[in-house]
Amino acid sequence: MDPFLVLLHSVSSSLSSSELTELKFLCLGRVGKRKLERVQSGLDLFSMLLEQNDLEPGHTELLRELLASLRRHDLLRRVDDFEAGA
């Protein structure tokens, strides 16, 4: 399986429902409101961002910004580990 997708799945499974709600709010300018209403998990949101090329294995800035906004430094370390091994 693609290591970047494994990372996104790992991050998604670590998010609380309130954190997902916050991420959806933060992505309002990037993803349409109707699409965001269908998001049920972090993976749903990340999939939309992947489709729009806002997220890519070599383009993790948005993911970092979102996780920093949540103050999830543990998840930021996972992104660091991914990039160190990528």
Rank of each mutant, 00 (worst) to 15 (best):
M1R: 10
M1F: 06
M1N: 07
P3S: 14
P3G: 13
F4G: 01
F4C: 02
L5M: 14
L5G: 09
L5N: 14
V6T: 15
L7K: 02
L7H: 00
L7Y: 00
L8M: 05
L8T: 01
L8I: 06
L8H: 02
H9R: 15
H9K: 15
S10L: 08
S10N: 13
S10K: 10
V11Y: 04
V11F: 05
V11Q: 02
S12I: 03
S12A: 09
S12E: 03
S13E: 12
S13R: 15
S13P: 05
S13M: 15
S14C: 10
S14M: 08
L15F: 04
L15C: 03
L15V: 04
L15G: 02
L15I: 10
S16T: 13
S16V: 04
S17E: 15
S18F: 09
E19A: 00
L20H: 00
L20T: 06
L20A: 03
L20C: 04
T21F: 08
L23T: 03
K24R: 06
K24P: 00
K24L: 03
L26M: 14
L26S: 07
L26Y: 10
C27F: 04
C27D: 03
C27N: 05
L28H: 14
L28I: 14
L28Q: 15
L28S: 14
G29A: 11
G29K: 14
G29Q: 12
G29N: 13
R30E: 04
R30G: 03
R30N: 06
R30F: 08
R30P: 03
R30A: 06
V31H: 04
G32N: 08
K33T: 11
K33S: 11
R34W: 09
R34Q: 13
R34F: 13
K35Q: 14
K35L: 03
K35E: 13
E37L: 09
E37H: 07
R38S: 11
R38N: 09
R38D: 14
V39Y: 02
V39Q: 01
V39T: 04
Q40N: 12
S41Y: 05
G42F: 12
G42C: 08
G42M: 06
G42K: 03
G42N: 04
G42R: 03
L43E: 10
L43F: 15
L43M: 15
L43C: 07
L43P: 04
D44N: 04
D44A: 07
L45K: 00
L45T: 00
F46I: 04
F46V: 04
F46M: 05
F46L: 06
S47M: 15
S47N: 15
S47A: 10
S47I: 12
M48F: 11
M48C: 12
L49G: 02
L50G: 11
L50P: 02
L50A: 15
E51C: 08
E51M: 10
Q52P: 04
Q52T: 13
Q52V: 09
Q52D: 07
N53E: 12
D54G: 07
L55Q: 07
L55G: 07
L55R: 05
L55F: 11
L55P: 05
E56F: 13
P57T: 10
P57F: 13
P57C: 12
P57N: 08
P57I: 08
G58M: 09
G58E: 11
G58K: 10
G58H: 10
H59P: 07
H59D: 14
H59Y: 07
H59M: 06
H59N: 15
T60L: 13
T60H: 07
E61I: 11
E61M: 10
L62M: 10
L62A: 06
L62S: 05
L63D: 01
L63C: 04
L63I: 07
R64C: 06
R64P: 01
E65M: 12
L66P: 01
L66R: 01
L67M: 08
A68V: 14
S69K: 14
L70C: 09
R72I: 03
R72P: 02
R72C: 01
R72E: 03
H73W: 10
H73L: 08
D74H: 00
L75D: 01
L75R: 00
L75N: 00
L76D: 02
R77G: 08
R77A: 11
R78S: 08
R78N: 07
R78D: 09
V79N: 00
V79C: 06
D80A: 09
D80Y: 07
D81M: 08
D81A: 09
F82G: 03
F82R: 01
F82D: 03
E83P: 03
E83M: 08
A84S: 13
G85W: 07
G85H: 12
A86E: 14
A86L: 13
A86N: 13
A86R: 13
